[in-house]
Simulated assay, not measured.
Amino acid sequence: MEALYTAEALATGAGRNGRVTTSEGRLDLDMAIPKEMGGSGNGANPEQLFAAGYAACFHSALQSVARAQKVKIADSSVGARVKIGSNGEGGFGLAVQLEVVIPDLPHEQAQALADAAHHVCPYSNATRGNIDVDITVVND
């Protein structure tokens, strides 16, 4: 693959209880284990960052597919939920739920756009076959 862009981040401290920064300084975050996992919850966590990245990337893919099909999707949005839990083998796994909102578009057409975006989105392509990703078109 020929890279169009490369992002760089550095985690320091104690991983989930440390700090993460990006090379250009756009992100500089304290990290903390969520309360639900026994931590303080007083910082960001990798699942939040993954959810934010996946939501933004998938929304961009959705808009790209809509443009290619000459479909207007004004006021569309994508929400992402990233779950972490035991994989039953001594490790952890992730699952993702994406909620796509495309106002004023018939459900079937919106679902077709979301399905097409799932084949374009780099996050979807990277996770396909590795984690469960559920894509649902909702009204709001």
Rank of each mutant, 00 (worst) to 15 (best):
L4K: 14
A9M: 14
A11G: 13
T12N: 07
A14Q: 14
G15W: 04
N17C: 03
V20S: 00
T22C: 11
L27T: 13
M31V: 04
I33G: 01
P34M: 10
K35L: 09
E36M: 06
G41P: 02
N42F: 05
N45F: 06
N45A: 12
E47F: 13
E47W: 13
L49Y: 09
F50K: 03
A51V: 07
A51T: 03
A51R: 02
A52N: 01
G53D: 06
Y54K: 01
Y54Q: 02
A55W: 01
A55R: 00
C57D: 04
A61M: 09
V65I: 06
D75V: 01
V78I: 13
A80Q: 00
S86P: 05
G88R: 08
E89K: 15
G90A: 09
G91W: 13
F92N: 11
F92G: 10
A95K: 06
A95P: 01
V96C: 07
V96Y: 00
P103S: 08
L105G: 03
L113S: 03
A114Y: 02
A114F: 03
D115K: 01
A116D: 11
A116N: 11
V120Y: 05
C121H: 01
C121I: 05
P122T: 06
S124V: 03
N125V: 07
A126C: 09
A126H: 08
R128A: 12
G129T: 01
V133A: 02
I135S: 06
I135H: 01
I135K: 01
V138R: 09
N139T: 14
N139Q: 15
